[in-house]
């Protein structure tokens, strides 16, 4: 299969990732523990769109993913194609719209930028964006460790299905299963933009 075909035909994995984020954020009250990056909090808020072929449910509100309509849409076989996500790690707090099919972030709210000069603002913005991407990618790595394991269909998916049906989930048994599966190896790869305080001076400009 060509790269273009793999990109197009595996877009559904983004929706499954969003289901898993939703499932875990409800199961653990927003608390995630990342193997390489430590603890973070994540929850869906503001808006969520669930789709199945041409049918679409678009829900808005303070916590639409908690609304009965959202869970009912899941039970009907719809999957989230995009959702607004809030994530915090330490003192950093972000919010963004995640497009699951494209694996793209839009309307990203980053922690306040404190630098004044345009150059410095750029480095600070890129540092914060790359921090967010590192964190979100690490979450994706955690999901993929489950999704690509032999235990997915018979071990993990049944917990998610129970949650979709609105049944209580055996949290201890799920955590035990999670603990056995290591995240994929590159999940904590480091970003390349240094923190603003360490950013090197940009080379002097050539005056035309």
């Amino acid at each position: 299969m060509s790269l273009a075909e793999l990109i197009e035909q595996r877009r559904f994995v983004g929706r499954e990732f969003l289901v898993w984020l939703w499932f875990e954020s409800e199961l653990f009250e927003g608390r995630f523990s990342l193997d390489a990056l430590g603890a973070c909090e994540l929850w869906l808020e503001g808006q969520i769109t669930l789709v199945q072929e041409k049918e679409q449910s678009r829900l808005k509100g303070a916590a639409p993913s908690s609304a009965p309509e959202a869970h009912e849409a899941l039970r009907q076989g719809k999957l989230p194609s995009q959702a607004r996500v809030r994530v915090t790690r330490g003192e950093l707090e972000y919010a963004f719209l995640f497009n699951a099919d494209a694996f793209a972030l839009a309307g990203v709210k980053i922690p306040s930028v404190v630098k004044d000069a345009a150059d410095e603002q750029f480095y600070e913005r890129m540092y914060l964006i790359e921090e967010l991407e590192t964190l979100f990618t690490a979450l994706y790595g955690e999901f993929l460790a489950l999704r690509l394991s032999a235990a997915w269909e018979t071990g993990v998916a049944p917990f998610v299905r129970a949650w979709v049906r609105g049944e209580p989930v055996d949290v201890a048994a799920y955590q035990k299963l999670r603990g056995k599966l290591a995240p994929v190896r590159g999940a904590a790869r480091s970003r390349t933009t240094p923190p603003p305080a360490q950013a090197p001076e940009r080379a002097a400009r050539v005056v035309a």
Partner: peptide, 18 residues
């Protein structure tokens, strides 16, 4: 990953729930 098939989350199952 290259041979993944979509998961059906709304399927009935007797596993996983408490």
């Amino acid at each position: 990953f290259e041979v993944l098939k979509p998961t059906v989350f709304h399927a009935e199952s007797t596993l996983g729930g408490a």
